[in-house]
């Protein structure tokens, strides 16, 4: 019961709060424009609902059956009334249609000076590439107050890039390019969801848009990503590398339990059985092969053929091996 009160307060406040409309935070001006459109839709809908359902409730109470022989008037139709209640909704529909059209075209007009970032969807992580050669996974860093254009494709199935704070969404299609643009007004972190069902770990295919100042962005862009590993031992580097590359979308990194694929914790020296009847042991060579050629061996216990080729260099592979080793029993 104690828990229920905050639920209903949230529910109630989100329904009545005039400026809120139960929408996520507004990350930019476009979001505010979509919200005013939604606010209009909501108010007109609420008004029509009260009119229709209020009328219904009023009539059923007022004209409740009194006797079994109640007479009712024979009212077959009324042309004026019927014209009005067809034409007025039609006008409202046309108005909101045009409003939605205008905003949609605005959202699709890519500014020529937009800063371009390539985005890739894969089961189940988002990768980003900048023109400078900087790459990232699960986090897109962009400067505030600058139009950003995403050029997107998928390496496997359909995905959809959805940033609620900017009220934009676009499907990401294998074998084709789609695009999306936004300009963030405020610094901060904004949630990205995959909105198109893409299989097992669809519901954790998250990313973040990190909006920073121009200077901070330039520093980030120019920085050597390898710098982040300074001062760490090899095993810690391995864990950091795996998190950066999104391995955790399909593998648990900090507990010995299978997710989509086998755990990358404590499995060094574990036995693997393959579909051809042979077996093997998780050692350095096996880990390297599993990263470089994910489908070379078909395991009995895990789904095969779903791991993508992920760009990892030899040094990083050795860190990953060291991490798995360090977490396994000697």
């Amino acid at each position: 019961m104690k828990k229920l009160i905050p639920f209903f307060t949230t529910l109630f406040s989100s329904v009545v709060a005039y400026a809120d409309y139960a929408m996520p935070i507004q990350g930019n001006k476009y979001a505010a424009e979509v919200d005013s459109l939604y606010g209009f839709l909501l108010n007109v809908s609420l008004f029509s609902f009260v009119l229709v359902i209020g009328g219904m409730i009023f009539f059923v109470l007022k004209y409740k059956r009194k006797t079994d022989n109640d007479g009712t008037p024979y009212i077959s139709h009324n042309n004026t009334l019927e014209f009005l209640w067809s034409f007025i909704p039609f006008l409202i529909f046309m108005f909101v249609f045009a409003w939605g059209w205008k905003l949609y075209y605005q959202a699709k007009a890519y500014p020529e000076n937009a800063f371009e970032v390539h985005a890739f969807g894969r089961q189940w992580a988002w990768d980003f590439q900048y023109k400078s050669g900087r790459m990232s996974t699960g986090e897109m860093v962009v400067p505030v107050g600058k139009p950003i254009k995403l050029i997107m494709t998928s390496s496997d199935v359909l995905h959809s890039f959805f940033i609620p704070a900017f009220r934009i969404k676009q499907d990401v299609i294998p074998g084709a390019y789609t695009a999306l643009w936004f300009e963030a007004d405020k610094e901060g972190e904004y949630q990205v969801f995959c909105a198109e069902y893409c299989g097992k770990s669809h519901s954790t295919m998250y990313a973040k848009v990190k909006v920073v100042s121009q200077e901070e962005f330039e520093t980030w862009l120019a920085a050597d990503p390898m710098k982040a590993y300074d001062g760490l031992n090899l095993a810690d580097r391995g864990l950091k590398a795996m998190k950066t590359k999104g391995c955790n979308a399909c593998h648990y990194l900090e507990k010995d339990q299978a997710l989509v694929g086998p755990s990358l914790y404590g499995q060094f020296g574990a036995k693997r059985n393959f579909v051809d009847g042979s077996s093997g042991v998780v050692d350095e060579a096996y880990i390297r092969e599993s990263i470089k050629m994910p489908n070379a061996k078909k395991s009995v216990d895990y789904e095969n053929g779903i791991m993508n080729l992920i760009p990892v260099n030899e040094k990083e592979i050795s860190w990953i091996i060291e991490y798995i080793k360090s977490t396994s029993k000697k």
């Binding site: 459109l37 939605g100 959202a107 198109e196």
Partner: peptide
């Protein structure tokens, strides 16, 4: 059905649907 209907109109408005689609 009236609630279903008015929210259907909201979803038919493109810019609103872009946000609501697949949610």
């Amino acid at each position: 059905f009236t609630i279903g209907g008015v929210t259907g109109i909201m979803l038919a408005v493109i810019a609103a649907d872009v946000h609501f689609h697949d949610t």
